[in-house]
Computed example of a mutant assay.
Amino acid sequence: MEQVGGDVVVQQDPAPLTRHLRVHQDRGHTVLEFRGEIDIAAALEIVPCLDRVTARPAARIVIDLRPVEFFDCSGLRLLYRARARVLDHGGQLHLVCTQPLTLRVLRVTGLARLLPPQPTLDAALGQSEATSGSV
C-alpha cells in the first residue's frame, strides 16, 4: 500500500508481459495460467512472477496448465519451486491440468501425489475452500 495525498492506494502487480503466462484473480486466488510450450526459455520468463506471487504470506494460488501444449522438466521444476515456496509461506497451491501427456508426466514423477491435478478451475477453487490451508 502507498499513501498518496491522504488516500491509501492499493497497488497490484501488473500482469507479466510474457506469452507463456497470464495472471488473473479469481475468488481470492491468484491464477497463474501457463501457456504454450513450457520449456527452459519459458521457465526463465515465468520465474520472476512465480517468485513474486509465491513469496506472499498465506498466498492462495492456482496454476492452470490447460493451455499448455508442451511441458518438460523445466515445467516440473516450476511446479516444485512454487509448491515449496507456498508451503514455506503458509499458503495454498492447487493445480489444474487436463492435458493427457502433462498428466502422465505428473503421475510418473510423483508430483501428482503432492499436487493433485484438478480438471477445472472451479474444481481447484472448490478444493481450496474445502482445505484448511495445507498444500
Score class of each variant (00 low, 15 high):
6 G>E: 11
6 G>W: 13
7 D>Y: 15
15 A>K: 08
16 P>H: 12
18 T>R: 13
18 T>W: 09
20 H>F: 13
22 R>I: 05
25 Q>L: 06
25 Q>C: 05
26 D>L: 07
27 R>L: 07
31 V>P: 00
31 V>K: 00
34 F>L: 15
35 R>K: 13
36 G>H: 08
37 E>L: 01
38 I>Q: 01
39 D>M: 02
42 A>F: 11
44 L>N: 05
45 E>H: 15
45 E>A: 15
47 V>G: 03
48 P>E: 05
49 C>Q: 08
53 V>T: 10
55 A>Q: 10
57 P>L: 06
57 P>M: 05
62 V>D: 03
67 P>Q: 09
67 P>F: 10
67 P>I: 15
68 V>E: 02
74 S>P: 04
77 R>V: 13
82 A>P: 04
82 A>T: 04
83 R>E: 05
85 R>F: 03
85 R>L: 07
86 V>D: 04
88 D>S: 05
88 D>E: 09
90 G>Q: 02
92 Q>W: 05
95 L>C: 07
96 V>T: 12
96 V>M: 08
96 V>D: 02
98 T>Q: 08
101 L>E: 15
102 T>A: 13
105 V>H: 04
106 L>T: 00
107 R>A: 14
107 R>G: 13
108 V>D: 10
109 T>A: 08
109 T>D: 02
110 G>V: 05
112 A>H: 11
112 A>T: 11
114 L>P: 03
115 L>K: 00
116 P>L: 01
120 T>G: 15
122 D>K: 12
122 D>Q: 13
123 A>L: 11
123 A>R: 14
123 A>N: 14
128 S>A: 12
129 E>N: 12
133 G>F: 08
134 S>I: 06
135 V>I: 06
